[in-house]
Measured scan of single mutants.
Amino acid sequence: MQFKLIINGKTLKGEITIEAVDAAEAEKFFKQYANDNGIDGEWTYDDATKTFTVTE
């Protein structure tokens, strides 16, 4: 399945899409990606669109 991350950071904005087995695997990848890029904010997930959003 495809999952999307929308980044609304103070210094980094954009979107990335990955293939993952389930939402838990996608969330783990996205949170590591955000951590690696210094993004720390509020997370939301929309199951209907398979979209995670992080907002700083």
Rank of each mutant, 00 (worst) to 15 (best):
E56Y: 13
G14Q: 12
T49S: 08
N37T: 11
Q2M: 14
A26W: 00
I16D: 02
A23G: 15
Q32H: 14
G38Y: 11
E27H: 11
E42P: 06
N37L: 05
Q32P: 02
G9N: 09
L5R: 00
W43D: 00
T53R: 13
I6V: 13
T44W: 08
Q32F: 12
T17W: 07
F29K: 14
D40G: 08
T51C: 03
K28T: 11
E15I: 10
Q2A: 12
T51R: 09
E19P: 06
V54K: 00
L5F: 14
N35V: 10
I7H: 07
N8R: 13
T51L: 15
T55W: 15
G9F: 12
E15G: 04
I7C: 02
T44G: 06
K50N: 09
T17S: 15
N8H: 14
K50L: 12
E15Y: 14
I16Y: 06
K28E: 12
A34V: 06
K50S: 09
E42T: 13
E15Q: 05
D46I: 04
D36E: 07
T44P: 00
N37H: 09
K10V: 07
N35E: 14
F52Y: 15
V54H: 01
F29Q: 06
N8P: 04
D22P: 02
E56W: 14
E19F: 14
F29C: 02
E15T: 12
K31G: 03
K28R: 11
A24M: 08
E42F: 06
K28W: 07
A34T: 15
E56S: 09
F3S: 01
K50Q: 06
E56H: 15
Y33T: 04
E56F: 12
W43S: 01
A34W: 03
W43M: 14
T49Q: 08
N37M: 14
A26V: 05
F29G: 05
T53F: 15
A34E: 01
K28F: 05
F29A: 05
I7K: 01
T17V: 12
G9D: 08
T55P: 01
Q2G: 07
N8C: 07
K31C: 02
A34I: 05
T49R: 10
T53A: 10
K50C: 03
E15K: 07
T11P: 09
A23P: 12
K28M: 06
E25S: 12
F30E: 00
A20I: 11
Y45A: 02
W43C: 01
T11C: 04
L12R: 06
G14C: 03
L5H: 00
I7D: 01
I7R: 02
Y33M: 05
E15M: 05
T17F: 10
T49V: 14
T55I: 05
V54L: 06
G41F: 04
G41R: 01
E42Q: 07
E25F: 04
E15S: 11
E27Y: 15
L12M: 07
E25M: 07
T51I: 07
T51K: 12
G41P: 01
G38S: 05
E25W: 13
Q2K: 04
G9E: 09
E19C: 06
W43Q: 01
I16S: 08
T51S: 07
G9T: 15
D36I: 11
I7Q: 02
N37R: 12
E25R: 03
A24I: 12
K28L: 07
A48W: 15
N35I: 12
T44I: 12
L5N: 01
G14L: 06
I39P: 02
F3L: 02
V54M: 13
W43I: 15
K31W: 08
N8W: 10
E25K: 05
D40P: 13
A23N: 15
F3N: 00
F3G: 00
K28P: 03
A20W: 04
Y45L: 03
D22L: 05
I39H: 14
K10D: 03
F30Y: 14
A34R: 02
T53V: 07
A20C: 03
D47Q: 12
A23Y: 04
A24E: 05
